[in-house]
Simulated assay, not measured.
Amino acid sequence: MSASTSGGGPLSPQAAAEFQEGIRLVFGRWTALQMAVENEWGGRDSRAKADQLAASIFSWFANSKGPFYYEDLEDMMFDSMSESFHTDCEDGSVGEVAVHLLTMHEECLQNNFSSIEKLRNTRPQGNVVSQSRQVANEDDDDSSDDDDESSMGEDVAARSEDMAVDEPKPSKPTPDADGWTTVPPRRGRGKN
């Protein structure tokens, strides 16, 4: 994906303030970042590191003439998460956050703050990290740790409902033509 947004000139003072607030709101809903902060994956100053990431992102937009490339922003966020929090975000959330920030910046250049206003008015329900843990516990962690992280916390409730659906369980594994037996996942084990 090589999408970019135009430079469009500097943000007005109001647009700059709105954009900073938008970055803060997006980062507050980014589960991977919030887990890194809460669990102090970046050490005791994890909150300060998250705040510095937000400031660096704002500075990148404010001090560059553009065009702003998706890959550059995504790489910067991947590097920061890796270096500051020792975290490799392979859940697609970095890309989603990058797209959201690029869109929000483009809107702010046009003095359109509707997406930021929407974020302000749709507070995440409870703590994004605790919601992620709830989903992980319901999933019984049968695969990788990346599956329990939603990008912005908005899909957690929907995913939780999807996981509540009971699927029919095979009665007994049967060997295939080569004599190999497929073992079903351990989902639901220990919940009886």
Rank of each mutant, 00 (worst) to 15 (best):
G92W: 03
D91G: 10
D139M: 14
Q134W: 06
L119E: 08
L73I: 13
P173K: 05
P170Y: 00
S160F: 07
T182L: 15
S4I: 13
F113A: 07
G8C: 12
G9P: 05
T31H: 00
K65G: 10
L102A: 10
D75T: 13
G22V: 07
T174P: 04
I57Q: 04
T87P: 04
E90L: 10
L11P: 10
P184A: 03
Q110V: 15
S82N: 13
L25P: 03
N192V: 09
G43E: 05
A17V: 04
V156G: 00
D139A: 15
S171K: 11
E83C: 09
S93E: 00
W41A: 05
H105L: 02
N121M: 10
Q110I: 14
Q125H: 02
Q52M: 12
S130D: 14
W60Q: 11
Y69C: 00
A55T: 06
S171E: 12
F58L: 05
F19W: 03
C89N: 10
A54S: 10
F61C: 01
G66S: 05
S144G: 13
S80F: 09
G42S: 06
S171F: 05
H100E: 11
Q52L: 14
V165I: 12
D51W: 05
P185H: 07
L73Q: 05
T122A: 07
R29L: 02
L101N: 06
M35Q: 04
G28Q: 08
T31C: 02
A3M: 09
D178E: 11
E117D: 14
Q14M: 10
I57Y: 03
E106M: 00
T122N: 14
L119A: 08
M152W: 01
D72W: 05
S56Y: 12
K169D: 05
I23L: 08
M81G: 08
W180R: 14
Q20M: 07
V94G: 03
E18W: 11
E83T: 15
W180K: 15
E90D: 06
L101V: 15
G22Y: 02
L53M: 15
I23D: 03
N111T: 11
E71C: 15
E90G: 11
E21Q: 07
V37N: 04
L109A: 01
E149R: 14
Q14G: 04
S93H: 04
D72E: 12
G42R: 01
D145V: 11
F27E: 01
P13M: 07
A62H: 01
W30Y: 12
P124E: 00
G153C: 08
S114C: 07
G9R: 04
D88M: 01
K191L: 04
I116Q: 06
F68V: 01
Y69H: 04
G153H: 07
W180D: 14
C108H: 00
V99P: 00
D148T: 02
L11I: 14
Q52G: 12
P10Y: 02
G188S: 06
